[in-house]
């Protein structure tokens, strides 16, 4: 069709050809299902019957009156906030400590041990820690000589699960920051030493400014992954006891598969995506903004 080719460069046309498998896949597996879900969110549908009842924004309004959802949002917020603040901070200390180990074999050993936890499936990590937390024969109570219900105590359960996520991904976060530390030019350290900088000064004025981009990535990864965290909660407590560890992701799946509220579940999925997008954009905007100021 020669008419179409007018105005579109040959390179753009070749570009489309090379991108078409990727675009097809994104359309078929992500965009079209996502739009279908968007449509679903305006209907009341139980997933089985052929009857779809149009309810407009009712599903979105229903969220406000859903007590379990409010509890889930609270838990998700605490969990994500704890992860976004504590994990990158700890990872930064860990990365700096490991990078400053002089012996190569020891440095590699530390790196391997801390990173190894992030290799396993979150579902498997959840199983391992269910064993560790088991009140009677679990490792933790044996070591402490106690009999805490780590996953059965409403005040404790969220933090017990937080510890698992912390254990699993601290090393991965640290590894990203270590890559950042390795990219700091050697001369900058030497220059700072010449100017009389000590350990803290080196970190504050040489390493840290260089790491800002890497820290941003670690924070964004934590926002994205923890807001949608599902496997840990599903396998360890399934939201219990009495919704004390219910998070938005588990609530969405339960509403769809146990309650048959597919429209409502769809609406909540969209709210979750929206919150994720907004937080990531705000965070990136803030960090970019600060960079310009400096």
């Amino acid at each position: 069709m020669p008419k179409i080719s007018i105005g579109i460069s040959a390179e753009t046309r070749t570009g489309w050809r090379f991108l078409s498998p990727a675009i097809l896949l994104v359309l078929a597996i992500a965009i079209i299902p996502a739009l279908y879900t968007l449509g679903m969110s305006f209907y009341s549908w139980n997933g089985l019957s052929a009857k779809w009842t149009f309810v407009g924004l009712q599903n979105y309004r229903d969220m406000l009156g859903d007590k379990t959802l409010m509890q889930a949002i609270r838990n998700t917020a605490i969990f994500t906030l704890a992860n976004v603040i504590l994990k990158p901070a700890a990872a930064l200390c860990l990365a700096y400590a490991i990078e400053s180990v002089r012996l190569t074999w020891l440095r590699v050993t530390y790196r391997t041990i801390f990173f190894s936890t992030s290799l396993i499936s979150a579902a498997i990590a959840a199983m391992i820690w269910s064993f560790v937390y088991e009140p009677n024969v679990g490792l933790l109570n044996r070591l402490l000589g106690s009999n805490h219900m780590w996953l059965g105590d409403r005040d404790l359960v969220l933090w017990s699960i937080f510890a698992v996520g912390f254990w699993q991904f601290l090393g991965q976060n640290a590894l990203i920051l270590m890559a950042g530390l390795q990219s700091v030019p050697r001369e900058l350290y030497d220059a700072a030493e010449m100017d009389g900088a000590r350990t803290w000064g080196m970190f504050r004025f040489v390493a840290f400014p260089h790491l800002k981009g890497f820290i941003a990535i670690v924070v964004v990864i934590n926002i994205i992954n923890n807001l949608k965290a599902y496997d840990l909660f599903k396998v360890m407590t399934d939201g219990g006891p009495r919704h004390a560890s219910e998070v938005v992701a588990t609530h969405i799946v339960k509403q769809a598969f146990e309650k048959g509220e597919l429209g409502y579940s769809a609406a909540m999925s969209y709210a979750l995506l929206l919150v994720t997008l907004v937080l990531v954009v705000i965070y990136l905007w803030l960090t970019e903004f600060r960079k310009e100021e400096a």
């Binding site: 990727a22 299902p33 992701a249 999925s269 979750l272 994720t276």
Partner: peptide, 24 residues
Amino acid sequence: TVFVALVVVMMMPPQLTLISQFLL
């Protein structure tokens, strides 16, 4: 455009497309 689409796909919670994919 394509690049941004990929980034958004990465952020999507799997629950968002789960049921629609199931039906598809």
